[in-house]
Amino acid sequence: MEPEVRSGQSEFGQSSPAGIANREISQVRSRRVGLAFDPRAQLLIVLLAGAACALVPWTGALALTVVLALYLSLQGLWKAALTFLLGMMLLAVAYAVSVSAGVTVLDFVAFMLSLLLRTLPVAMAAYPLGFVPSGRLIASLQRLHLPKGLLIALAVALRFLPMLRLEYEAVQTSARLRGLSASKLKNWRNPLQMFEYRIVPLLMRSLKIADELAASASVRGIEAPGKRTSVYTIGLNLQDYAAPLVFIGAAAAWMMWGTGG
């Protein structure tokens, strides 16, 4: 694995074929310097991580996390990589303890923990996709000949989710002022109503925002029938081939030797 990482780093020194605009994004927008992967490669890694987590034992999932931590760090997301790594280790310790305790009550806890141990690496693999500008994501996925409607829906969803979070915060603030705070125990006497007080205002806002967002896309020609172009130059580079290969190699190696026969 080591040589691959080095070759990835040396690649970064060269001018990226993804073009000037692209380099500006990774450096200025998120103030992180890292290797840029094509969203298709990133998506493949998510699928591979999902498959691997289903196949290997939990110790294998832990080892996968280490590989994924390298993958995240390469993209400049080393803080997130450390957090995920730490979280996995804590989960693993908790799991090992609950299994070895031999108490039946803990069986259910152990089961839940093992599920978490297998889903966290997938979340970790998907994490970098959240940093891809939606224009780049659409342009890249368009190469996979996915239907345009699906791509647009995906772009809207990506745009909508962070907005929904902001709106939820506004609703939450207003709820606290009105004495409907979720942290007040007495408000939980009627949990269904509590739920309604959060969902109804959020729904009203969402409807309005969704309508305006769609109108804004419509006047800018989103329904144009031809092929969509992109400001981003889309292409697969060395790292886009290398990363999935390394990943498959690591998983295969673990299955052959890592389990200790």
């Binding site: 605009a21 927008r29 939606s134 224009g135 780049r136 772009a155 962070p162 925002i209 400001v231």
Partner: peptide, 14 residues
């Protein structure tokens, strides 16, 4: 808030 379709300035322009 609701007229910007993209998260990045240049994407929004383009």
């Amino acid at each position: 808030r609701s007229q910007f379709f993209n998260a990045v300035v240049q994407d929004e322009m383009a």
